[in-house]
Design a protein around this nucleic acid. Structure first.
Length: 272
DNA sequence: CATTGGACCTGACCGC
DNA sequence: TGCGGTCAGGTCCAAT
């Protein structure tokens, strides 16, 4: 599920509901979730801590506590739910019981999600290699140019590299390339300045739309309230194989790039 | 260094 | 109904 717009949607809901609350108890229900320290130490670090704010860096969710930062990465299937502490549903991996309901539940079917109770040094290790925040002002065609220089990989793969720009995943990479009219397998280092500018704009536009529509959900809910996002109705190409391109009407095609399903318009996005 | 392929997990869905 | 294969919004690591 979660790329930058989905994580940002969750962050906003968490900020509204848990800022200023105290974590009475942290229960890890799947030891594989916890990174960097023992499970009991992780739980102890969180228990009793007050939540200051909810932040985000790329696809990482950051709950800033008094003495450390709870870092969550939801990977493919992780979700954050706000519901009563006693209402623990299947596949729940972490429950943060606060000083009043609702509690924070991390639910993750595939168990790829990760969590850290991070100090400042841990935070540098975890976040240190991320590229610029795409909506944070430090991102433009020049940062893409610097990252893509001399790279022969498909631009789709280069966009998914979090060192280039933080937070873009499979949905928004396809959408950004469509908006920029760039074929997904174009070697990253071969893009013209005009193409890099269009791509930077496409990334920004796709992510901004995703946030405005509360994220993209397929078949299953993802906001903390259990409601679906709305962005899936606004997508131009992603998972629209065979349906008409909104720009020219040609059928959207699907191919595999870097082992990821990739959707594009063969007419609007010509091979170089 | 850059790039590729596999691994990590579970569940849904499709065709036979 | 059961079985096998494919697919899924991400990242890391080993091999080349």
């Amino acid at each position: 599920m979660p790329e930058l717009p989905e994580v940002e949607t969750i962050r906003r809901e968490l900020a509204a509901h848990v800022s200023g609350r105290t974590i009475r108890r942290a229960q890890v229900l799947d030891a594989r979730l916890v990174q960097g320290r023992a499970v009991d130490e992780f739980e102890q670090r969180l228990s009793g801590a007050r939540v200051q704010t909810a932040d985000r860096r790329g696809k990482y969710l950051l709950l800033r506590l008094d003495a450390c930062v709870l870092v969550l990465h939801l990977m493919m299937s992780g979700r954050v739910h706000l519901r009563p502490a006693a209402d623990v549903q299947p596949h729940t991996r972490l429950v943060l019981t606060l000083d009043r309901d609702p509690a924070v539940h991390l639910v993750d079917v595939r168990r790829f999600g990760r969590a850290w109770a991070a100090d400042a040094a841990d935070l540098r290790d975890i976040l240190g290699r991320l590229g610029p925040e795409p909506l944070g002002g430090g991102f433009d065609w020049r940062t893409l140019q610097a990252s893509f220089r001399n790279r022969r990989v498909a631009v789709k793969s280069a966009l998914l590299d979090q060192r280039a720009v933080a937070g873009v995943g499979n949905i928004y990479a396809d959408e950004a390339l469509f908006t920029a009219r760039i074929h997904p397998t174009t070697p990253a280092g071969q893009l013209s300045q005009a193409q890099l500018q269009a791509l930077a704009d496409g990334v920004t536009a796709a992510l901004t739309s995703g946030i405005a529509n509360f994220g993209t959900s397929f078949s299953t809910f993802e906001t903390t309230q259990g409601t679906a996002g709305e962005n899936q109705t606004r997508l131009h190409v992603f998972r629209r194989t065979g349906q008409p391109c909104p720009r020219c009407g040609a059928p959207i095609r699907r191919m595999v790039v870097g082992q990821r399903g990739t959707h594009f318009c063969g007419e609007c996005q010509r091979e170089a």
